[in-house]
Write a protein that binds this DNA or RNA. Structure first.
Lengths: 355, 355
DNA sequence: TTGTACGCGTTATCAA
DNA sequence: TTGATAACGCGTACAA
C-alpha cells in the first residue's frame, strides 16, 4: 500500500515528487523557483501536486530550514485594542507594513506584558525581528528578552539605550517652533497640555517636582518651556479629544487666569481644547490660539485647521521597517531622527489686546 | 575541540544537554515542563543553558515538531492602516487578542490582496488558523487559499458560504428596533445614512436600483425600510464622522424636504450628522432626532449621548477566537449571531409638531 | 537540468 | 524520573 492510503496524512513535497517521478529537490525547486526547471518537469510536478492536494511547502518546515520565519513582531506596551486608537500609531503601522512587505514579512502583534503566563509572547514566537513602540520602562523587560534571543530590535519613540537603533523625532526643536510662532504673535500667557507624564498617569497639573518619565512628553515640554519658561502645564491621561476637552476646561476655568494660547502636545488634545474653548464662549483664534502636534487628520474637526507640527508618522514606520530589513541582512542599522514641519492653520492668531 | 568553538553558531538544546550531562529529551522537558524532572537535573540543565547563552527552544523547530506555530492570521480587505480607524474593528481585535492568548497564540496581520508578489500572505505564513474580516467578494479568494491549505477559518461579519463558521449580528432586527423607536416618537419623515454600498463606493444617494453588495449595509438598510419603506437613503463612503457630516449636509440641504429623524448605520456617521445639523441651525433632538449603530464611545461627542444599538464588538472578536480555538481542537465550531441592544440616549425625541 | 545526501532544532513515544 | 530513537517537512551543497 502506498503511503497516501493512511488517508488523514497531508501530502508532503516528497509525495509530490514521487508521484511526479522526480526527486524531492526538483519538486522543491519548482515551488521556490530558485533554479531553472524544464517546462515538462514543472508541469508534471504541478499536476502531481494538484492531484495530491498539495498546496505548497509547509511554512513551518521551510522556516526551520531557511532560518527565517518571515515574521516581524510589533510590541506594544498597551492593551492591543487601545494601541490603534492613536492615529499616529495607526499610520506608523501602515508604514511598517509597507516596509516589511518587500521582505516577505508579516506583522505579529504582541503585548509586552502578557497577562496570563501561557501567552505567546516574545519568548515563543518565531520572530525574525522585533519593533518596540514607545519604550518607557515597561518595555525594558521585553527589550532584554529580545536581545537575549539575539533578535534584531528597533525602537520607535523611546529610549532603548546604546546599541539599539531608534526611530524618533526632533520633538524639542519642533515644539519650540510652535512656541516661537505664538510668541511672534504676541502671546505671553501660555498653557501647555501635555501627553501623559508617566505610563499610569491620571490627568492633572504638572508641577516643577513632577517626574516626567515618558520621553516624548518630556521632550516636547522642554521645547515649549524653552520659549515660555513660565507656562503652566496640565498633563492629560492619554491622547484623546476628550482628554483635551477636560484639560481645556481646567485651563479656561478661571476667567482671571486665562491663557491667550494653548500648546497641546497632540492634535487630538488640541481638538479637545478647542471644543472646551467653544464651550467656554471663547473664539478660536480670536480669543485663544491653539496649537497641536502630529499633523494628523482629526475626524470631525472641520472647519478648523490646526496650526500644528506635522510629523512623518508613516515614514517613521517605514524607517523602522527599513532598519529591520538592514539588520536582517547583517548591516547594522543607524538610528534616525525625523524632522517635523511646522504648518500654520487657522487656530492661531494675534494675541488679543489687553482688556 | 568542542563544537562551541565554531563561535558564531548558536547553542542548541543538544549542546545544553551535553554540557549538563543529560540527554536532549531531558533538557527539552526541562524547558517545556511537560514531564516532572528532578530538581537537581533541572538545576544542571538551567545552569548549562545560561552558561551557553541558550535562551530556550527555537520556536521554528518547535513549531515544526509540534505542528503548531501559535499564530492566528487576521485578514483584512483594506489597507492595514485604515483597518484600525474603525473603533468597532479595534474592539474586535481586542476581543480576538484576548481569546487567542490562552491558546498561546499571537495575531498576524495580513492583507488579503498583497500588492507585490513577494508578500508574506496567506500562502506562506505559518498559520494555525485564520480569521477573515468582512467577507465581501474580495476576500473570497483569500478564503479559497486558506481552505485549500486546510487551515481552520472563521469569518466575521460576512458571508463565507456553507461550511465556514461566521460571527455576525442581528443587523436587520436591531435596526428595526431603532426605527420603531422613532416611529413611536411620531416621526414620519426619515432619512437613512448608510455605510458604503459597495467596497469602492463613492458617497451619494441610494436609489432603488442601486446594488448593495456589502452585507452589513444591506441588512441594516432592510431593517430601517421594514418600518419606513419610503425613507430616503444616502450612502457614505466609509464609517467616519466627516462622512456623516457630508451626508448630513446633503440631507438637510433643502429646507422643504428635511426629515425629522435620521437613522445612521454607525455611531461615527451619526456624530457627523449631528454636527451637520448643528451647522444648519437644527437642534438635536428638538428639531431632528438621530440614531446611530455600534454603541461605541465617540471621542469628542459629549454632551450628546447617542441613541444607538450597542453591538458586542469585543464579544464578536472573542467569539471568533473561541471558534478558532475549538477548530484547532478538532471540534467543529458553530456560527454565532449576536444580538444588539437598544440604548436610548439624548439624541432622539418626539417629532416636532408640524409647522 | 536533475538527483543524492544530509541536517535544520526540536519533541513524542516508548522503554528502562 | 531519565534516555534512546525517530520523525517533523523541507532546502541546498554538491555531484552527475
Amino acid at each position: 500500500m502506498s503511503r497516501q492510503d493512511t488517508g488523514t496524512r497531508r501530502a508532503t513535497i516528497s509525495d509530490v515528487a514521487r508521484e511526479a517521478g522526480v526527486s524531492p529537490s526538483t519538486a522543491s525547486v519548482v515551488f521556490s523557483g530558485k533554479t531553472p526547471v524544464s517546462d515538462a518537469t514543472r508541469r508534471r510536478v504541478l499536476d502531481a501536486a494538484s492531484a495530491l492536494g498539495y498546496t505548497g511547502p509547509d511554512p513551518r518546515a521551510a522556516s526551520l530550514r531557511r532560518g527565517r520565519s518571515g515574521i516581524v513582531g510589533v510590541v506594544f506596551e498597551e492593551h492591543l485594542g487601545t494601541a490603534f486608537l492613536d492615529p499616529v500609531k495607526t499610520l506608523m503601522m501602515d508604514g511598517l507594513a509597507d516596509a516589511v512587505t518587500p521582505l516577505g514579512a508579516g506583522l505579529l502583534l504582541l503585548r509586552d506584558h502578557e497577562p496570563t503566563g501561557s501567552g505567546p509572547s516574545l519568548t515563543t514566537a518565531p520572530l525574525d525581528a522585533a519593533v518596540l513602540i514607545g519604550c518607557s520602562g515597561l518595555l525594558r523587560e521585553s527589550l532584554e528578552t529580545v536581545k537575549a534571543r539575539g533578535i534584531p530590535v528597533v525602537v520607535i519613540e523611546g529610549d532603548a539605550g546604546d546599541d539599539v537603533p531608534r526611530i524618533g523625532l526632533d520633538n524639542r526643536e519642533a515644539q519650540r517652533q510652535a512656541a516661537s510662532h505664538l510668541r511672534a504673535l504676541g502671546h505671553r500667557e501660555i498653557a501647555i497640555v501635555t501627553l501623559p507624564a508617566r505610563v499610569d498617569w491620571q490627568r492633572g497639573w504638572l508641577h516643577d517636582d513632577t517626574a516626567v518619565t515618558v520621553d516624548v512628553t518630556r521632550e516636547r515640554l522642554a521645547g515649549a518651556l524653552d520659549v515660555f519658561p513660565d507656562a503652566t502645564a496640565y498633563a492629560a491621561a492619554g491622547s484623546f479629544i476628550d482628554e483635551g476637552f477636560a484639560a481645556g476646561r481646567e485651563i479656561f476655568a478661571d476667567p482671571d487666569r486665562r491663557p491667550t494660547a494653548v500648546i497641546a502636545q497632540s492634535d487630538l488634545l488640541a481638538a479637545g481644547v478647542i471644543r472646551a474653548a467653544e464651550e467656554t464662549g471663547l473664539r478660536v483664534p480670536e480669543d485663544v490660539s491653539v496649537t497641536g502636534f502630529d499633523g494628523i487628520v482629526v475626524d470631525g474637526l472641520a472647519p478648523y485647521e490646526l496650526t500644528t507640527l506635522v510629523q512623518p508618522a508613516t515614514d517613521k514606520g517605514r524607517a523602522a521597517g527599513a532598519a529591520v530589513a538592514a539588520m536582517l541582512e547583517g548591516t547594522p542599522a543607524a538610528s534616525i531622527r525625523f524632522t517635523c514641519t511646522f504648518r500654520e492653520g487657522n487656530t492661531t492668531g494675534p494675541a488679543p489686546a489687553l482688556a
